[in-house]
């Protein structure tokens, strides 16, 4: 039986990682909640963001916390263009053709990454990576704390955007009543594209933070896509706080599984949680009843 201190350390590390997961899932949740398109390339976009951080670090010694800005900006533009150019024409088509479109995009992304970077693991080596804050018996990895702080700040910014800005409210209006949005003359296609851009920017920030915590290989993508789904379903489809909360739960459960079983059993707890939620609270922990 591991000591209480060890458990506390592991839970806290899991919670901090979970906030980064939560930000990634938030991106998926926002896109689905508004555009009603499931971004099957979400995890692949996460890995691309991780590679962007690696490249910027390698080329310019740019700290991932600074890389967040250019990477998020590029991802925003990419997400906007993808929705406006590629997905909007598919919106009225049957769901399986949207699905095929995004799965195709995902597969292309993985293979392009393999072509460029090869299959071996890459990471960044910042000097604060080995530092930690100490509170009695509990150690907080500095990089992990900062990454979680960035994820939290980005999420808070997004919440504020949706609550207080005209554009944010207009996006919520589109999600609430698409026909109503057209009736009052909102530019629905533009707002959809903005939403996809924002969801992509969330992934960009999450990816830049994640590279401080794990090494990246091109094949991480599908796993992250699945993880984002699991989180969003556990937290509640369309609930923004739910995505963060689900991320924390998954982060902690992965860490616990690693501690009590084996690191390879990491996702087991997450899926067990998913099954429990689907059985007993299908709308998700913070989701509204349909």
């Amino acid at each position: 039986m591991p000591s209480i201190d060890l458990i506390a350390n592991v839970v806290i590390a899991g919670l901090l990682t979970g906030l980064v997961y939560g930000l990634m899932a938030l991106g998926l949740s926002v896109i689905f909640g508004v555009v009603r398109v499931v971004n099957f390339a979400h995890g692949e976009m996460m890995t691309i963001a991780m590679y962007c951080a690696v490249v910027l670090f390698g080329a310019f010694k740019l700290d991932p916390f600074l890389a967040v800005l250019p990477v998020a900006a590029v991802f925003f533009g990419f997400g906007y263009a993808m929705q406006a150019g590629l997905i909007n024409p598919f919106i009225t088509r049957p769901e399986h053709s949207q699905f095929m479109l995004l799965v195709a995009v995902a597969i292309i992304m993985v293979n392009v990454l393999l072509m460029i970077f090869g299959p071996s693991a890459l990471n960044v080596q910042v000097d604060y990576q080995l530092e930690s804050y100490e509170f009695g018996p509990i150690l907080f990895d500095k990089a992990r704390v900062l990454a979680a702080g960035m994820a939290l700040a980005t999420s808070a910014g997004l919440f504020a955007f949706f609550k207080y800005t005209n554009t944010g409210k207009a996006i919520r209006a589109c999600a609430d009543n698409n026909l109503g949005a057209k009736v009052v003359g909102l530019n629905v296609k533009h707002l959809y594209a903005l939403t996809f851009g924002l969801g992509s920017a969330c992934v960009a920030v999450a990816g830049c933070m994640m590279i401080l915590l794990v090494d990246v290989v091109p094949t991480l993508g599908p796993g992250y896509t699945l993880l984002a789904f699991v989180i969003v379903i556990i937290g509640g489809l369309g609930s923004m706080p739910g995505a963060l909360f689900g991320g924390i739960l998954i982060g902690v459960s992965e860490a616990m599984a690693g501690l009590f079983f084996a690191p390879s059993a990491k996702s087991m707890f997450g899926f067990a949680l998913l099954i429990l939620v689907l059985l007993f609270r299908p709308q998700g922990l913070l989701g509204r009843k349909p």
Partner: peptide, 23 residues
């Protein structure tokens, strides 16, 4: 003023009105 009203149910009254004034 559309058939079925087409208001935004989870937006507040003020927010609904604001949406009409964004043109």
């Amino acid at each position: 003023v559309a058939e079925g009203r087409q208001i935004f149910p989870t937006l507040s009254v003020v927010e609904n009105l604001e949406m009409g004034g964004l043109l």
